[in-house]
Each structure stands twice: as C-alpha cells, then as structure tokens.
Computed example of a mutant assay.
Amino acid sequence: MSTDLAALYSGRLLALAADIPHLGRLDAPDVTIRERAPLCGSTVTVDITAENGRITDFAQDVKACALGQAAAAVVGQNIIGRTLDEVTQARKEFIAFLKEDGPAPAPPFDGFEALLPAREYKNRHASILLSLTAAQKALAEAS
C-alpha cells in the first residue's frame, strides 16, 4: 500500500467504518431516503422519525467504501435530536471542509475531521457525503 493510501485508511478512519451506529432500518419510519454516488455505486438508505422538527430516531443501511462508512459513523453518532438547520449547516461545513480546505465542521459533527486525508480524493467525496445528504433530505421531507 502506498504511503498516501496508508494515510487515507488510518486506524481512526477504519475504526469509525467498523462501528457504524444505528445500522439497519427502522420498522416504521416517517421518511426514507436513498442516496447513491454515481461514480462508485455506493448507496446509503436513511430512515428517520421526527417530531417538532427534530430527528427522534434514525437508521441507515450503508453500502459504501470505508470512507463512506466512516462518514456514516460520524452521522450516526450525532444525528438524533438534530434539527434541519443543524443538519444543513453541518453538511455545508462538511462540503467546505472536503472541497474548499475549510475547517472541520463544528461540534457535534467535528468527528468528520477524521476524513481529512480524503480531501485530495475528489472521486470519493460523493460517497463520503451520502449519509449526511440523505439525513438532510429526510428531515427536510419530514418537516
């Protein structure tokens, strides 16, 4: 493995990918959104329930590379209780972090900082954004 790839697939990133919270599907979601990254074929299906504009329950079925899985883990760790504004802001910050060399997203989504080595792998950005994008769309639809 090249040094670049070794840095990309760090222990922290692989640990996130191996332990994705809220993996699976909800029995009775308010909204289900499936997102697909066309370039690599990764998919994430997100189920949510929401009340008063906040996510009350969340599940995700993740079929993605380790980078997409790591990002899904950060989403799963932090998404319950969030509002559409919070999720939209996190996604905006995450996109700026990946594509514009911006700072890591603000807490509670600062765990995305683990994906710093993925910035230069633009072909993986769509997969990395799947879970957060699906969560944002689901909450927008539920609101």
Rank of each mutant, 00 (worst) to 15 (best):
L13R: 07
A17W: 00
A6C: 03
F58Y: 15
R34F: 07
T49C: 09
T56M: 11
D30C: 10
V31K: 09
A71T: 10
A72E: 07
G41H: 07
L16K: 04
L26T: 08
V31N: 06
D4Q: 09
T3P: 06
L13H: 07
P38G: 04
I33S: 05
D19S: 09
E35I: 08
A37Y: 13
H22T: 04
D27L: 07
G24F: 06
C65F: 04
L13K: 07
A64C: 02
A64T: 02
V44D: 02
L26K: 15
D57W: 14
R36V: 13
A66K: 06
L67Y: 01
V75Q: 05
Y9D: 03
T43V: 14
R12L: 06
D4K: 02
A73N: 03
P21G: 06
L16R: 06
A50V: 01
V74N: 00
A66T: 08
Q77W: 14
A28S: 15
Y9F: 13
D61W: 10
N78A: 12
K63T: 14
L67V: 08
L13A: 01
I79F: 08
G53V: 01
Q77G: 14
L23Y: 12
A6K: 09
I48Q: 01
I55R: 04
C65D: 00
D4E: 13
A50T: 04
A59V: 14
A37G: 14
D57F: 02
A15W: 01
A18C: 02
T43K: 10
E51H: 15
T56R: 14
D61N: 11
G76V: 01
L5E: 11
D19K: 11
L14H: 12
D4M: 00
I80H: 12
A7M: 09
N78M: 04
Q60P: 08
L5T: 07
K63A: 13
C65M: 07
Q77K: 15
P38S: 03
D57R: 14
D4A: 12
V46D: 02
T32M: 08
C40H: 02
R36F: 05
L14G: 09
G41F: 00
L13T: 08
E35V: 06
V75G: 12
I48V: 14
A28F: 05
T45C: 13
C40W: 07
A72P: 01
A73E: 01
V31P: 00
S10P: 01
T3W: 02
Q60C: 08
D57Y: 10
I79L: 12
T45F: 10
A7N: 12
A7T: 03
L67Q: 04
E35S: 12
T32V: 15
V31C: 04
A73H: 10
G24E: 14
L13D: 02
V62H: 09
A50F: 06
L23G: 12
L5S: 10
A70Y: 00
A73P: 05
I20K: 05
A7L: 06
I48M: 03
